[in-house]
Design a protein around this nucleic acid. Structure first.
Lengths: 205, 205
DNA sequence: CGATTATTGGAGCAATTAATCTATTTTTTA
DNA sequence: TAAAAAATAGATTAATTGCTCCAATAATCG
């Protein structure tokens, strides 16, 4: 799909490819794409340049694969929380999970997808498209949670899950960035509470 | 304050310094800090490396000065709009100004402060502090507008201008980033409307 | 087993980058 | 106007970067 496929991968090859991806994703999350060099991967993971270019062809393709990895990672973490949005308390638990994660990261790194987007969106059209698709899936997961709530009658029929989900995702992005800037989670918590309060209006006792 | 001061600046020197700052700010907004090189400034503005290092000492100091320039620029644009927040219509006008600006920029570049923050916050403590201070001033401008509304009786006394202002600023940041990613202003408009609706609840007829 | 193919190490390259140095011109000042 | 200081051009440098190449090793398969 997204990687160079010039030859068959052996078991060992697949393992190496995966190891490169994992380390590259972590490194790009910490230091950005531009701040991640072949030398870094060499130092941190003992990965030789020839390995990187054997499995990914060029840096742009590696970045593309990292975007895919981070997208799946975010959805894997968010999915379970969002599919169980069966009460106002569940919304608060979801908010707390995000806030606590940023706290645990000591306010460094922002959103794994949002940070990549800020760096790449303007100058890598393909990356932007992939990231937009990832955000669309995230948005859909939030919306589905709200729709399920509405279908079960916990949310009044006049609630607009589309608008609320998009607002929520956008609020998360702003909140994560503000966390990085302020080195606290106040702004993140405040903006999430603001959007949650808009949902609360529609909650049925 | 923030620049190397090894000698007195003449009128010509001040003009050159200012020209470097203007061009560097524009270039870093377009291409990021890492994406802006001495060669770029040379090509775009005919600025020789010796001029840059004569007036700013090193790149980090230039970046610091660019942060100051962008902060003043944002506050200069936002200030007048925020100090006239005397009605719900004024809030909508402020929202439209932000949305229209991103539209005019064709969805490229995000927020001039937010983009710098995303790139620098984790690896330049001084830059992060300056940006945090800039955002605090922006937040204060929003809050002052809301407080004035409340003092004039247009907002009910139980409105919380602090929380609303912080949520609003954070929503703007998320919305600007989403604009870059999605190449439309829907998310920006939606999240701003969500926060504005929270303010609307407190508006007195 | 033996041939083919995949994997890897590591030297090395061309281009780029932040920053420096020297020499020259321009401006200010006394 | 002459000396001092400031501004500038442009060549240069040391380090870094993305990437390539070749030779050697390991895995797979008929």
């Amino acid at each position: 799909m997204d990687a160079k496929q010039p030859h068959q991968l052996t078991r060992k090859g697949r393992a190496t490819r995966q190891r490169i991806l994992t380390i590259a994703a972590a490194q790009m999350f910490r230091n950005g794409v531009a701040g991640t060099t072949t030398d870094d991967l060499q130092r941190v993971g003992g990965i030789s340049p020839s390995q990187i270019y054997h499995y990914f062809g060029d840096k742009k393709s590696l970045v593309k694969a990292v975007i895919a990895v981070q997208t799946e990672s975010v959805l894997r973490i968010q999915g379970p929380l969002l599919s169980r949005l069966d009460s106002f308390e569940a919304l608060e638990a979801w908010r707390d999970a995000i806030v606590d994660l940023q706290q645990a990261r000591r306010f460094e790194g922002g959103c794994p997808l949002g940070s990549l987007a800020a760096e790449l969106a303007d100058h890598d059209a393909e990356a932007r498209a992939d990231l937009a698709a990832g955000f669309a899936r995230w948005e859909a997961a939030i919306r589905d949670g709200l729709v399920a709530m509405r279908d079960r009658g916990e949310l009044s029929p006049d609630a607009d899950p589309d608008a609320l989900a998009l607002a929520m995702l956008t609020a998360v992005q702003g909140g994560m960035l503000m966390t990085q800037i302020r080195h606290d989670t106040v702004a993140l918590r405040t903006v999430l509470d603001a959007v949650i309060d808009r949902i609360r209006v529609h909650i049925r006792a």
